[in-house]
Amino acid sequence: MENMDEQLPEMNAGSDPIVYPPKYEKRDQTTNIWIKSVISLGLYLFLGYYIFHSFQMLLLITSVVLFHELGHFFAMKFFRYKDLGIFFIPLLGAYVSGSKRDVSQKESAIILLAGPLPGIILGIILYLLYQNDPTLAIGDISFGDVALLLVFLNLINLFPVYPLDGGQLLNRVFLDEEGWIGKIFVFISIALLAWLSWRLYSYHHQPIYFVFLLFPLMMVLRMFGDNKLKSVEKKIETEGIDMDKSYEDLPAEDYWKIRNILIEQHPAFSDVPPAPPYEYDVKEEKIMTTIQSLLHRHLVQDVSMAGKIFILLIWAAAIASPWLLNMNMYFFRQFGL
């Protein structure tokens, strides 16, 4: 007797089985990723020089930012993230991009702390060396100033404000990032970043500080994008398509069905003709990336209460370290700290 539960090929009106072409497979992105990284670095340096008018200072800041991001990069590489790349955002900083389906809280904590902690430690070492010998310098910049820059930029990243490293750490390990508490935290972060931009402008009276509004603006745009994807995800679920799998395990049939739903529901793909005919579009790579983002990601909650306390102590020690060492963190005086 035949097994009637076995999945049969989908039939069209003429009862002929539909043969779905393979799902879109992206080409090796390593070269493209690093080309984009180099281009972003070039723009970062070009606009940075316009602001600082000192190539030496610009290189120093870029080196500090790169040192920070390399910490994230190597930690993500150690935990086998794919499609890794470092991208610079002119006037704002940089970030490391990578993908992994099963995300561990423990791994995330290590990755997030691997950026700021080495910079703070190096800054403290340089500061202590400078205290012992004030003549030490890199070019015309003293070890003391280099130390303050290292500590300051990395300390800022540890603040519990999303999307800074400290904010991501709080949301990933201590809050429910997919729940309403995590969303409220993101809204609070948006408000704080907007306030920071205004506070800096009020103190310095320089419009350049409004560039910090780009952070909350990008976060708001991302939230709108996520909401659009939520409606797409609900439609996919009503079609009975299993999204709890990796892209590699996604059947070709499901790919083309999800693709049609995406074209129907998402305005970014409204100009793409639905299948059939089963033909790739010029936007196929973007469609594939969006489908990948829709597939369920697993967050492994593997940090115990003792682990959370340990992470919290490390974070608090890093935050407090410059004040414990009596470093002159004059920047924070304008905020009453």
Rank of each mutant, 00 (worst) to 15 (best):
L60T: 07
N154Q: 08
F310L: 11
N3D: 08
V96Q: 00
L229N: 04
A318G: 05
Q131Y: 07
S246K: 13
F52V: 06
E264R: 01
G139V: 04
P17D: 03
K308Q: 14
W34T: 00
I35C: 00
I261L: 13
P17K: 13
A268D: 07
L41S: 00
A268P: 06
H68D: 07
L214Y: 11
F152N: 03
E25N: 14
K183Y: 10
I311G: 09
F310E: 03
A194K: 03
K286D: 06
H72E: 04
F210N: 05
Q334L: 15
S15H: 13
L295W: 03
S40E: 00
D5N: 13
L175D: 02
K235H: 11
K36M: 04
E107V: 10
R172P: 01
A275T: 14
F143T: 03
Y95G: 01
M219L: 15
G139Q: 05
Q265R: 14
N132P: 07
L129N: 08
A317L: 11
F210V: 07
G115A: 09
F73H: 05
T238M: 11
F87E: 02
F310P: 04
I110H: 06
Y24H: 14
F55E: 02
L214R: 09
S321P: 07
D176M: 08
L153G: 06
R333E: 13
I258F: 13
Y44Q: 01
M288P: 06
S37N: 01
N326W: 05
I184T: 09
Q265A: 14
Y81L: 03
F52N: 02
L60K: 10
V282C: 04
I319G: 10
G14W: 15
P322D: 04
P277T: 06
M57L: 10
L213C: 08
K77M: 00
F67D: 04
L294M: 02
H296F: 02
K245M: 12
S189Y: 02
D83L: 06
Y44E: 00
A275I: 09
L66H: 08
G336C: 09
L214C: 12
L229E: 02
K23V: 13
